[in-house]
Design a protein around this nucleic acid. Structure first.
Lengths: 185, 185
DNA sequence: AAGATAGCAGAATGAACGTTCTACTACAAG
DNA sequence: CTTGTAGTAGAACGTTCATTCTGCTATCTT
């Protein structure tokens, strides 16, 4: 997972994988079947070990905007502190590198995006359910959730060229504050 | 440019380039020096031929939010209509694939981001200069511009997995409307 | 017409790729 | 002690990679 994460799919060779894992070539082929199948397994593991811990707070039944904010802050902190093995988000990297040419991989990153979308939307719904007095119109939760997914993906991309974490924090806080105003409008 | 755009840097071979350009291998090497130098030239050309036409409206001296909106809409339309040779944005793709491991390429995509940032910030400043009556506090133009750059990058990433253009339009319009409210606050 | 130059197709090259095959080692069960 | 099972290292294989080299064919200059 770490090798694919740091080098990308194409630039990762079997030699790199053997070196990093300590396993033999034969073991990799007998256990997974090949580079492509191994990468699919890696994507699944990434979901379990990286996405789930980060996103669990948003996926709580009673999550609101503050959980979304915690998610974003958690991600920036991890990226900044070097707590992540690779740069950016493996899923986001995969979306641009291999997903357009590979159906199986496309389906997995699509499921990931759907997961984020549903999590965000529920949190936004919960947010305004606490005080739904004298509202003008119901917010377009789908559009706001889509917007947030897009922003989250852009954040991963941006974190690869923007070294200044403070700048990212400012942008995220500004974005979430805008969402908050939008929900309360 | 088209080949790198569609296949990415690593997955593009000299054979692909020879086939698509019609030029001989020797010509490519004598004219550019190699695959890497050719890619750098491609990034420059991308700036001139793709980014500049799309971004010129935002970079006008008197550009405001409506020009930013025109930029986003222009990009979605082009992506949707198949008017673009490749998927997503070559710069955005390059950021995730090669920029973290390559200094020269990193500098070029960084310059691109800076260009977007400055364009957006100026447009936002122009926007509120038209009616700066009874404002509470000056907006944080840097944060809003950074946020918009992040969103623009996320939009390219998302457009590779979200096929529904209407969904992208909705998200963009929502985002820009939020920015508008934020600027007028 | 003669010479120079440029661009072409395609072979050659050495390295690296993913994948498979071949011993060899360690260990468990009988 | 034999036998079977796993796992290892590393060679081998066929392909493809980026890069270079070799002729050949135009086109242009004088």
């Amino acid at each position: 997972m770490e090798v694919f994460w740091t080098r990308g799919y194409e630039a990762t060779s079997l030699q790199h994988l053997v070196q990093k894992t300590g396993a033999s070539r034969q073991s990799i082929y007998s256990d997974f079947g090949g580079k492509h199948e191994l990468f699919l397994a890696v994507l699944d593991r990434y979901q379990d070990e990286v996405v789930s811990p980060a996103f669990s707070c948003v996926e709580q039944a009673e999550a609101t905007l503050s959980e979304v904010e915690a998610y974003f802050h958690y991600q920036i902190e991890r990226a900044e502190s070097g707590g992540l093995p690779g740069p950016g988000c493996l899923i986001a990297n995969t979306i641009t590198e291999v997903a357009p040419h590979d159906v199986e991989i496309y389906q997995r990153v699509n499921a990931h995006n759907e997961r984020l979308f549903l999590g965000f939307r529920k949190a936004f719904k919960n947010e305004i359910q606490t005080d739904n007095t004298r509202r003008h119109a119901a917010p377009n939760f789908d559009a706001i959730a889509t917007m947030t997914v897009i922003f989250a993906q852009g954040l991963w991309s941006a974190s690869r060229v923007i070294d200044d974490a403070a700048q990212l924090y400012l942008a995220v806080d500004h974005f979430l504050n805008m969402v908050k105003l939008e929900l309360a409008r």
